[in-house]
């Protein structure tokens, strides 16, 4: 089971109290995680990736095992500890305004 930690605003939108838990068959990549997240939580469509370009929104970043995957190609394989659920996959909102 893949564990995904969302920014608080998106947790509210998705009515999540904690982590999103995703079941993914096949390779666990950035794309498969985001695709599955959007299928399970359709209210999040357009919030993480721009609807038109399908690009990551600029003020969001992707982290796995303390590494920044934000600029990696979407088909990049995520670490085994993410695929196994040992570590969560983070979608992080930028700190801005201060």
């Amino acid at each position: 089971m893949i564990r995904v930690i969302l920014p608080p605003y998106l947790r509210t939108i998705a009515s999540l109290n904690g982590e999103a838990k995703l079941s993914i068959e096949g390779e666990v990549t950035l794309r498969s995680v985001i695709d599955t997240l959007e299928i399970n939580y359709p209210m999040l469509r357009g919030t993480i990736r721009d609807y038109a370009t399908q690009q990551r929104r600029p003020f969001l970043r992707f982290f796995a095992c303390k590494e920044d995957y934000s600029l990696e190609p979407l088909d990049t394989l995520l670490p085994q500890s993410i695929a196994s659920g040992k570590e969560p996959f983070f979608i992080v909102g930028a700190i801005a305004g201060g």
């Binding site: 605003y9 939108i13 209210m43 721009d50 609807y51 929104r57 930028a94």
Partner: peptide, 8 residues
């Protein structure tokens, strides 16, 4: 809407 998360 939000600069982080787009339009709803």
């Amino acid at each position: 809407s939000s600069g982080w998360f787009g339009q709803m």
